[in-house]
């Protein structure tokens, strides 16, 4: 238990050490460093769950405020201007290292389980195409958006974001289309029959 907990500071520290190489490439900065920092906070949330204050669990109705915070924090750090500032101002980079785990990863980990399935589907449905669209903008932009990245690095970042969006979108569509258990399997058919009967009995 304690060793897994130690993962959080270790991962965080490693990301801090790997700062320069990851931030050197826009694609790594956006598609690797930022998500990993969020991941650190997410891990932290799973360890902190037993200590979550009651009032917070109650006020975070359906996980809406928490996930809204995630949306704000991630949008903030994806702004080209903030990417630039993170490179030029060490204190801004430190703020990023503190706020992405604490204001994006942590609320994500604590609020996501509270969000009902419909809300999660809504968030996925909005997140995936927007990620792809940002990627498309980077890929197609004729000018540089960041002072610290070349046009080709910006295009590579665009491709990376589009790739992530395609992978996520494909996974999501396969899951909703095929279902689990898959509809052609025995288990799937049995489950469908059973559900049918329950519903008919309820009518």
């Amino acid at each position: 238990m304690n060793t897994t907990r130690a993962l959080v500071p270790v991962a965080w520290g490693m990301l801090w050490i790997a700062r320069a190489p990851l931030e050197h490439e826009m694609a790594l900065h956006m598609a690797v460093q930022l998500p990993l920092l969020i991941g650190v906070g997410y891990m932290l949330a799973t360890f902190l769950r037993p200590y979550e204050p009651r009032w917070f669990a109650e006020s975070d109705w359906l996980g809406i405020p928490g996930l809204l915070l995630v949306v704000f924090a991630t949008s903030f750090w994806m702004l080209p201007r903030m990417l630039d500032l993170a490179l030029s101002e060490p204190w801004i980079d430190s703020a990023k290292f503190a706020s992405l785990p604490l204001l994006a990863g942590l609320p994500l980990g604590s609020s996501w389980p509270r969000m009902p399935g419909l809300g999660r589907a809504f968030l996925w449905a909005n997140f995936i195409p927007k990620l792809g669209a940002i990627g498309g903008l980077y890929l197609a932009a004729p000018t540089r958006l960041c002072a610290y990245y070349r046009l080709d690095q910006q295009a590579a970042a665009g491709i990376a974001l589009i790739a992530v969006a395609i992978v996520l979108g494909t996974c999501w569509s396969v899951i909703v289309f095929v279902g689990s258990p898959p509809f052609w399997s025995r288990a799937g058919i049995r489950r469908q029959r059973a559900r049918h009967e329950i519903l008919e009995a309820g009518e």
């Binding site: 909703v176 289309f177 095929v178 279902g179 689990s180 258990p181 898959p182 509809f183 799937g188 489950r191 469908q192 559900r195 049918h196 519903l199």
Partner: peptide, 9 residues
């Protein structure tokens, strides 16, 4: 999905 298991079905 809750009844048929998936949108394909």
């Amino acid at each position: 999905i809750s009844i048929y298991g998936g949108l394909g079905a």
